[in-house]
Design a protein around this nucleic acid. Structure first.
Length: 853
RNA sequence: GCCGGGAUGGCGGAAUUGGCAGACGCAGCGGACUCAAAAUCCGCCGGGCUUCGGCCCUUGGGGGUUCAAGUCCCCCUCCCGGCACCA
């Protein structure tokens, strides 16, 4: 075919650019038009409007956004936009959790200074966020690795130190050999490092800085009950983590030894009521008494060491719950202070040192583990609890051990015989206290937070060590202690900062003599524990933030992020808020009123990962389908809290939908000047009424989704239904069955409802419709419940619970009318012919069921 | 072992209070447009039977409550997440 002809054909058939939805054209146009600093999304300083603080968890600047981020931020952005349209003064900020190990690793492998690497990544990711059209006020951007921010970490550390909430202690700590640093308990997952899931964590003895999180153990726990806007799952995880356990401490004296603290074994038990059934004492292999006794006893030491090794191995591999119980009888005895009985002391592999006191009383009759152990070594099983039946008539039979039920009463228990278990626990604890050999106590799994890290890329801990004055805090006026540049990062052990003399060598502020700087840096979870307060007052030079300003914005109305932070970040943040409250900096008890945890994204049944090669890149999706389609798909594929199974074809589907919507809104078909079929009375024929009803129903559904369940997948379905209806009404429109103002209203509403999900296209269409005001602050449409109601409804008619017909009646019809309509229906008459009607169930507005025999 | 969440067409999922199971989308099939293809538009689309009127089965499995169960109750299987000899 000749070249010229071909060109002509193309010109004639290809529609002008504006007639087709062209995501790239529209998105680049609006990208240029929206200010780069996000100033159109700025919160108002002084506002009579109600406030709304919408917050998404800030990312670590790894170099590129992944789909999980896109999902997280698409949810938050839709919410923020919805709130703006509802007239709220919205705070919607973003920042960078930018300290941390990957920057150091990059420095080693790519010879790029951590700072350059990090800031470069931030620039890339910020550009991605802007391209995706997220509505952030960038003037409030917080970057935790900059001195403007981390100086306040140091300031907080000084305050914590002043209040005795930060302290230094020597202790066994978790050490990840790959990270070459200490980890908090929260960062150890199944015995392995949270960042290196194949690397076992070692135990090392080190001097560390700790924050006294345990001061708030009780409040952190009880506060969970009030956090009704948090997922039950997260609250349960935190409860488990805090691990409160009420029990009794009981001192057992070593038989035949001098009366001294070292010769006392304190056991922790939640069931002191069973103590008359104790037949041995079990110690953890690492218990101090065991260490002492084994010191000059080589055979025993060898045996104990084996138990220790075995226990550690089991702990590391996570099988501690499954190891076979065994132990060693060390041929010493302890005295039960309640009855003076001598109990043999054993060392057992199922007793761990880091819970309770590392010593238990073994009650085989009333504890499954003790029972298992006792059976192996043929130890005595002595019943001291019998069941209390609910029905007093029931005869009490002797239980089969191990009987662990708390619904029982005591037997063979001296003066406590006859008491119920609950009563006995209280009375026996008091008894122990009165006689000086024990007391009621509460233990927690939650430990103080070790924050020292032997790494470079973190906040320097503002402390000095002076030969003369000991530990001396850096004076507030000398903050920030700036992280030096040009630090050798190669992994030779010890803190990299320790190899920078200009940093280490300092002057003692007390005596003016030489002092050494602390060379450890802070755990990066310190940074994220309070960053959201800084957003409210990001440029403050005098304080982390102004209390009044924070008081206006806090608590966060909605916090959105991944469930992987359910424990770590969210417990530390709650702790920090409580500390700041007690300092008088804030008045709220909790940082966030409501929390939402979005589901993971998977592809082909597996988590996206480089090794599986199933990673979907946001950049690629945006280039291929546009930001609107990409974002909208993450909301459409499933409800936001569920796992999302990624399918590229699904994004195409959304793109097709946006194309159809574009066509519907830009369609120029005008109704004829003279209207034909419009009834005079109510001004609306059935087609017009159908459109009107659907319009109001759609506004209702989407508004409800925002206010309640957040099932944006059904919001988008509703939008599709509305769009399908309008696009199928071409004939009615050209025939003049739809009043032009109704059609215009439908298009307007369609664009308004679209805007939280697909802001680029919505802005383009808003302009095409000739709307003047900014879409961002246009009013969210209101629905009229009357107009949303159906005029006629279909009532299914069942016979014996099986669908046999459907009758149409006016909405709101009485039971009587519906019954008659059902009975008059031909199909129903056939179905019930020759049968006896037993019952007719008519549920107005719902259905009819005729029961026949 | 304990706690939480889940299982619905070929696929992702809907069904808000016990009331027509399968909305919406994807894939597939058929048709229109086209020389053709893509794009777009229209129609069909859980399974089985059918005399084409319909009939029967179907929400992981088994039992129950009810006129009526995906939804409530009891038992069981599997999957995901958390905790775990926690004394």
């Amino acid at each position: 075919m000749p070249q010229e002809e071909n060109t002509t054909v193309t010109r004639e058939t290809a529609p002008p650019a504006d007639d087709r939805y062209d995501a790239q054209r529209i998105e680049s146009k609006w990208f240029e038009r929206w200010p780069q600093d996000g100033s159109i999304y700025a919160a108002e300083h002084d506002s009579t409007k109600p406030k709304y603080y919408a917050l998404e968890m800030l990312p670590y600047p790894s170099g590129a956004l992944h789909m999980g981020h896109v999902r997280n931020y698409s949810i938050g952005d839709a919410l923020a936009r919805y709130m703006w349209m509802n007239g709220y003064n919205v705070l919607h900020p973003m920042g960078w959790d930018s300290f941390g190990l990957p920057a150091e690793n990059a420095a080693i492998s790519a010879h790029t200074p951590p700072r350059d690497w990090t800031l470069g990544n931030i620039a890339k990711m910020k550009a991605q966020m802007k391209r995706l059209g997220f509505a952030y006020d960038w003037s409030r951007e917080v970057t935790t690795c900059l001195p403007e921010y981390y100086r306040w970490n140091q300031w907080f550390f000084l305050k914590l130190y002043e209040k005795g909430m930060a302290y230094r202690k020597q202790s066994k700590v978790n050490w990840c050999p790959k990270c070459a640093t200490v980890l908090a308990n929260e960062q150890v997952v199944g015995g392995c490092c949270w960042r290196h899931e194949d690397t076992l964590v070692e135990q090392r003895e080190l001097e560390q800085w700790f924050l006294r999180t345990t001061k708030y153990s009780d409040e952190l726990l009880s506060g969970l009950d009030k956090l009704e806007g948090w997922p039950e799952k997260v609250r349960t995880m935190q409860r488990n983590w805090i691990g409160r356990s009420a029990g009794t401490l009981v001192d057992f004296k070593l038989d035949g030894a001098a009366d001294s603290p070292e010769n006392t074994i304190t056991v922790f038990t939640t069931r002191v009521d069973t103590i008359f059934g104790a037949t041995s004492i079990q110690l953890a292999p690492e218990h101090p008494l065991v260490t002492r006794m084994a010191k000059f006893n080589d055979p025993l030491r060898a045996q104990v060491e084996q138990l220790v090794t075995e226990q550690r191995k089991a702990k590391e591999t996570g099988d501690i719950g499954a190891i076979e119980k065994h132990g060693i009888n060390i041929h010493h005895f302890a005295v039960n202070p309640y009855n003076g009985e001598r109990l043999p002391i054993w060392v057992a592999n199922y007793i761990v040192m880091d819970y309770g006191t590392g010593a238990i009383m073994s009650v085989p009759a009333h504890d499954e583990r003790d029972f298992e152990f006792a059976r192996k070594y043929a130890l005595e099983v002595r019943l001291v609890i019998v069941p209390c039946p609910d029905d007093p008539e029931e005869t009490v039979t002797e239980p089969v051990p191990p009987f662990t039920d708390l619904k029982g009463s005591l037997v063979n228990s001296g003066e406590f015989t006859g008491l119920t278990c609950q009563d006995a626990i209280a009375k026996m604890s008091t008894y122990a206290e009165q006689h000086g050999f024990g007391r009621a106590t509460v233990t927690y799994r939650l430990k103080d937070w070790g924050i020292s890290r032997q790494r470079y890329w973190g906040t320097p801990i503002p402390m000095l060590y002076c030969e003369k004055d000991g530990i001396v805090p850096v004076p507030e006026k000398d903050l920030p202690v700036v992280l030096p540049d040009n630090v050798d990062m190669t992994l030779t052990g010890g803190s990299p900062l320790g190899r920078v003399p200009e940093f280490v060598n300092a002057v003692c502020p007390k005596c003016g003599g030489a002092a050494r700087r602390e060379t450890d840096t802070m755990d990066t979870f310190v940074d994220s524990s309070w960053y959201f307060y800084r957003y409210t007052d990001p440029h403050n030079q005098q304080a982390p933030f102004d209390s009044k300003t924070a008081g206006y914005w806090f608590p966060i109305d909605q916090y959105i992020g991944g469930v992987e932070h359910a424990i770590l970040h969210l417990i530390y943040s709650r702790f920090w808020t409580k500390f700041m409250r007690d300092m008088g900096m804030v008045t709220n008890d909790e940082p966030a009123d409501r929390l939402f945890t979005q589901g993971m994204i998977i592809k082909g049944g597996a988590k996206m990962s480089k090794s599986l090669g199933n990673v979907v890149s946001p950049d690629e999706m945006v280039a291929r389908y546009g930001a609107d389609s990409t974002r909208m798909y993450t909301l459409f594929a499933t409800a936001p809290d569920r796992e999302l199974d990624w399918q590229d074809e699904g994004v195409e589907g959304i793109q097709r939908f946006l194309s159809r919507l574009y066509r519907v809104v830009t369609d120029k078909t005008e109704p004829p000047a003279r209207r034909s079929n419009l009834p005079v009375e109510d001004g609306r024929g059935s087609a017009a009424r159908t459109l009107q009803r659907k319009l109001h129903q759609t506004i209702k559904r989407i508004s409800h989704d925002f206010e309640g369940r957040w099932h944006f997948n059904t919001s988008i379905s509703a939008l599709m239904e509305l769009n399908n209806l309008v696009s199928g009404m071409g004939q009615d429109i050209s025939a003049g069955n739809i009043p032009p103002e109704d059609l215009a209203e439908a298009k307007r509403v369609l664009v308004l409802l679209l805007s939280p999900f697909a802001p680029y296209l919505a802005h383009e269409l808003w302009e095409i419709l000739g709307e003047k005001g900014t879409l961002l602050k246009a009013s969210w449409p209101k629905y009229d419940p009357e107009l949303a109601k159906e005029d006629e409804i279909e009532i299914p008619v069942q016979v014996n619970g099986k669908l046999r017909s459907v009758v149409v009646v006016p909405a709101g019809s009485s039971e009587e009318i519906i019954r008659e309509a059902a009975m008059a229906d031909a199909k129903i008459r056939t179905a019930i012919t020759g049968k006896q009607i037993v019952k007719k169930i008519v549920v107005p507005g719902k259905l009819v069921n005729i029961v026949v025999r």
